[in-house]
Design a protein around this nucleic acid. Structure first.
Lengths: 145, 145
DNA sequence: GAGAAATTGTCAACCGATTGACAATTCTCC
DNA sequence: GGAGAATTGTCAATCGGTTGACAATTTCTC
């Protein structure tokens, strides 16, 4: 065994490590839940983005909001369209295809809403509401890109 | 466009969404930095785990601490061994292969230490030290599995 | 002790996502 | 207007990781 390297861990590093670990676990847990529907967390997020926007969005725009590549958005939309949750619309700019939420997509979103929220509630139960707000405030100050 | 679904976002959900987004960005940024060495963030984490343990660990044990599958650990160690950062040792239990940090691995760890810490410092700069400690405390209360 | 159950490392197959190339289309600016 | 740059969606290739099966070994249980 080599000589052990002395690594003093600063508060900043400790916080970053914890953020990465918790984020990783949340993604895994979330994906696990959506696997029951044959979907990914990101499929759900696409529906959520479309619903939040309140209007059809181009695939590129979805990719930007999702922090995902255009190529990946193509595949995400392919599946969502096959499920009938979404449809591609032609528009003025013939390069673009606007993606619109369908009634079935909105229904799926509404149906899964309770489960998604109960997951968040469970995760955050160890924190008081005040602590949750403090956490949101602190996370809001962090900028990475 | 379908009727928009009204989605009230609770504090808990807002916190979970932010944790996932920030965690995702941190992993991406971290991987980007290690790509310069032809490594993954997880390769680095293996070295870090071995250094922290202060003794050789079996691949299964590394997998447990890394939250990663045994199959993946095999591949991570394959590369680290080829780089000379790590070596596999026989031990009493002939199923196991103990993985030990080499001098080269310890040197790499020491060399990359400053860069890794400066990354964390940069990310956490918007927070005061007190806020950083508060964040660590709050994150410490969250349990997912 | 012997047979069953569990553990360990590895491999092939697969999965979600990214990169880079491509054609189609639109924008820019002279 | 028209030439070159930029944008958009798609596809093939690749990458990091997981799952499931496997043989070798060890541990448990009777």
């Amino acid at each position: 065994m080599a000589v052990k390297v002395k690594i003093p861990r600063s508060d900043a590093e400790e916080a970053v490590v914890r953020l990465m670990r918790i984020g990783d676990r949340l993604w895994r847990a979330s994906d696990e839940r959506f696997a029951a529907f044959g979907l990914t967390d990101n499929h759900y997020n696409v529906l959520r983005i479309l619903n939040g926007a309140g209007e059809p969005l181009s695939q590129s725009e979805i990719g930007r909001r999702l922090l995902s590549s255009r190529a990946n958005v193509t595949k995400l939309i392919d599946l969502l369209e096959k499920r009938g949750y979404v449809k591609r619309l032609a528009c003025g700019d013939r390069r673009k295809k606007l993606v619109a939420l369908t009634d079935a997509g909105a229904k799926f979103l509404a149906d899964s809403l309770i489960e998604v929220q109960s997951f968040a509630e469970t995760v955050m139960r160890p924190l008081t509401r005040q602590e949750q707000r403090k956490l949101i405030e602190l996370l809001g100050k962090i900028r990475i890109g």
